[in-house]
Design a binder for these strands. Structure first.
Length: 446
RNA sequence: GGUCCCAUCGUCCAGAGGCCUAGGACACAGCCCUUUCAAGGCUGCGACGCGGGUUCGAAUCCCGCUGGGACCGCCA
């Protein structure tokens, strides 16, 4: 079998959105699975809406997702140029040939491909199977007239259905993997392949991604750009994992995986046909699992920006207490928090005492009752979670009617300002005796 | 209006004629652990859209219906 060459061909008219990311991802998966090539081609033939800014935004979105390409406008390759606006002569030459062959004609400044009736333009799709279409079905809207296909616009630019055929052929694309919304374009493209005497590539259409209301994902469903997810605290590994699961599964129960594992297992033939709903709950879960599995230093790098965004003195703490302190703090957070942003919010007290003061004022506590307990705690030699807990328990055992939660909760509030946190003695150990003393004294509990 | 596609728990996926009184995950509910839950453990709720065939046997194959969706641009 010849080399697998696939491409992602976005038009730079907006940021990389969920649907585009999904398509790019599946192309990448297929290329990597087959040790083939993943090509990035920019379809910037819409002069009005295309911009260079969007082009680079899309590229950095792909980089963020971990989708690296082997040929593209930035890195070149043997089949360039990879920007359609730089391939105009190519499109014109072939259009000219079609005109000479009588398969296309001029109308105004444009060149139009003639659609002949009675032609079978069916094709076999790797995902959807046999799709039967006759050229007679290519009608104009609300009319029974056959619709010819514009291939060169009056402004001299090629149209999508035409340029895609020229490029896919010249770039030796083996599999055209794209959204299901292109199924009805495929027969038109097949007509052009035939007119040029070219062999058609394999086609694999991917199910659409829908919003919760089962309508095509759009702005009104909230975040649609990949970057918005990054800013919400979702990690690239999770987005990758989540997107890969929309319309595909390895067939077993494994749902949390890395890029390499997915590439290893991926099969186009296992792609689903049914449109999939984008489910935030599942994304949250997957992100949480990845967040849990991260090495401490990487987890810190994910959470850090959100601490900084919240105005916390992260750099300062790193230099005074050391980076390891913050890494340990996040390790202690275990699976608490579904996004890096949530984890940052839930753990701010490790970075600074300020937010604790804002959240709690020790108003409702009985200081006289609590002080002996805290004094006892601080009198203990070793500042170790297991020992602190042990002496706390024995102290409580010796005091009639005393309950652990009546002491542990005030401690939790004084140290974290939260009603929820990791085991409070472990928090105390990590924070250190002096910092704990400072916080308790501030609240008059010591 | 025309062409095409789709149809299993609320959601994402298993299921490729008997392994299915349909499996897993998320979500949800309840219980447990416990100094708290946003961590951990356990249990539960919950689906083959409907109607016809084919077959000894259908979630799986065929037809119809219904319900969704995509496309029908000198946008991609």
């Amino acid at each position: 079998m010849s080399e697998v060459r696939v491409r992602f061909a976005p038009s730079p008219t907006g940021a990389l959105h969920i649907g585009g990311g999904h398509t790019a991802l599946f192309n990448w998966l297929w290329a990597r699975h087959n040790k083939g090539k993943f090509i990035l081609r920019i379809e910037d033939t819409d002069l009005v809406r295309s911009t260079k800014e969007y082009e680079s935004t899309i590229m950095s979105g792909m980089v963020w997702l971990g989708l690296d390409w082997d040929e593209g406008p930035d890195i070149g390759g043997n089949f360039g140029p990879y920007r359609q606006s730089e391939r105009l002569e190519i499109y014109r030459d072939y259009a000219e040939k079609l005109v000479e062959a009588g398969k296309a004609y001029r109308d105004g400044e444009a060149i139009i491909f003639r659609v002949e009736p009675g032609q079978d333009i069916s094709f076999k799709d790797i995902v959807y199977g046999q799709i039967d279409v006759m050229s007679d079905g290519l009608r104009e809207k609300d009319s029974d007239k056959l619709k010819d296909i514009v291939i060169i616009k009056s402004d001299g630019m090629p149209t999508y259905n035409y340029a895609v055929v020229i490029d896919d052929h010249l770039m030796k694309i083996s599999h055209v993997i794209r959204g299901e919304d292109h199924i009805s374009n495929t027969p038109k493209q097949i007509l052009i392949y035939r007119a040029l005497g070219w062999e058609v590539p394999e086609f694999a259409h991917l199910p659409m991604i829908l919003g919760r209301d089962k309508k095509k994902l759009s702005k009104r469903h909230g975040a649609t750009s990949i970057y918005e997810y990054r800013d919400m605290g979702y990690m690239p590994d999770s987005m990758f994992n989540f997107l890969a699961l929309l319309g595909w599964s390895a067939g077993d129960d494994k749902e949390i995986f890395t890029r390499d594992e997915a590439a290893e297992l991926f099969e186009l033939s296992r792609v689903t046909r049914k449109a999939a709903v984008f489910d935030f709950d599942k994304l949250n879960y997957i992100n949480q699992e990845h967040l849990k599995a991260l090495p401490p230093e990487v987890r810190l790098s994910m959470v850090k920006p959100f601490w900084i965004e919240a105005g916390l003195p992260v750099e300062e703490v790193e230099s005074t207490r050391g980076v390891k302190y913050l890494e340990d703090a996040l390790t202690l957070m275990a699976g608490r928090g579904r996004t890096a942003k949530e984890m940052a919010e839930f753990s701010d007290y490790f970075v600074s005492f300020e937010p604790v003061k804002e959240r709690w004022n020790a108003e409702a506590v009985d200081r006289e009752k609590l002080r002996p307990f805290f004094e006892m705690i601080f009198a203990h030699e070793a500042w170790k979670a297991s020992e602190l807990e042990e002496i706390a328990r024995s102290w409580i055992g010796q005091h009639e009617g005393a309950k652990m939660k009546d002491y542990a909760m005030p401690l939790r509030f004084a140290l974290t300002g939260m009603k929820v946190s990791p085991g409070i003695f472990e928090v105390a150990e990590l924070m250190g005796r002096e910092e704990c003393r400072r916080r308790l004294e501030f609240f008059g509990l010591l």
